[in-house]
Design a protein around this nucleic acid. Structure first.
Lengths: 107, 107
DNA sequence: TCCATCCTTCCGGCTTCATCGAAATTGTGG
DNA sequence: CCACAATTTCGATGAAGCCGGAAGGATGGA
């Protein structure tokens, strides 16, 4: 993952409303959640929710699939996995930190 | 970690310039890096760098310590660790996803 | 065809952010 | 106490984001 991709994804998650949306989808797991269900559960105006979902889709963190009249949203786990790996990659390669409780040692 | 704290930290990392700064510090590890060294290494104007470092400090991702005439910056690993844990916490608790290659299963 | 439902796009207003040069400040060593 | 070097604050400007009501598709059933 390139730095700019990672930054875009982190920025997408940096908005409290979007982070709430995303975590709700993460909790929902494989079955996902319809847009309408999300709206009801989070009490967010439909247009606002749609904006945020679009943002999350563009950066690849969320995917959608139509099922009859409703749109099912799902968290894209591999992308999140890649993002986490990017954040801890190359930790301390410029210095010895094997005993300093650094991030990489706990993952 | 509360949702708003996590969002603030993700937002801080969401700017490409700040992410570059942060990753440079992560790579530097325990010894850290002086502000001036960072500036030279990343070719960022001093005022811009200072602005971004302040942002990273406010959310707790970076800490500073004076050493003679220079200020040493370090990545705050425990905070990053908490952020990663927050992101994968409660994955799929609303559904069974033990075999779907979800994030939590790989960490 | 017509309708009800679900969701998205358009639009407007407001707020916040990113950037960087110049000036001010702070701390060190002599 | 002074001079120097490192870093921060100030100020301005342009760009981008957040939000939500109203209007506009799209989908499936009667």
């Amino acid at each position: 993952m390139k730095l700019n991709d990672a930054a875009s994804r982190l920025e997408a998650l940096g908005n409290p409303t979007r982070l709430r949306i995303y975590r709700t989808l993460v909790r929902a797991g494989g079955p996902g959640l319809a847009v309408g269900k999300l709206q009801a559960r989070l009490s967010i105006p439909a247009s606002t929710l749609s904006h945020h979902l679009k943002t999350l889709m563009i950066v690849g963190l969320v995917s959608q699939e139509r099922e009859a009249t409703t749109l099912i949203c799902r968290a894209n786990y591999p992308v999140m996995q890649g993002l986490l790996e990017f954040l801890i990659a190359e930790c301390c390669i410029d210095a010895d930190c094997t005993s300093s409780g650094a991030v990489g040692t706990a993952a």
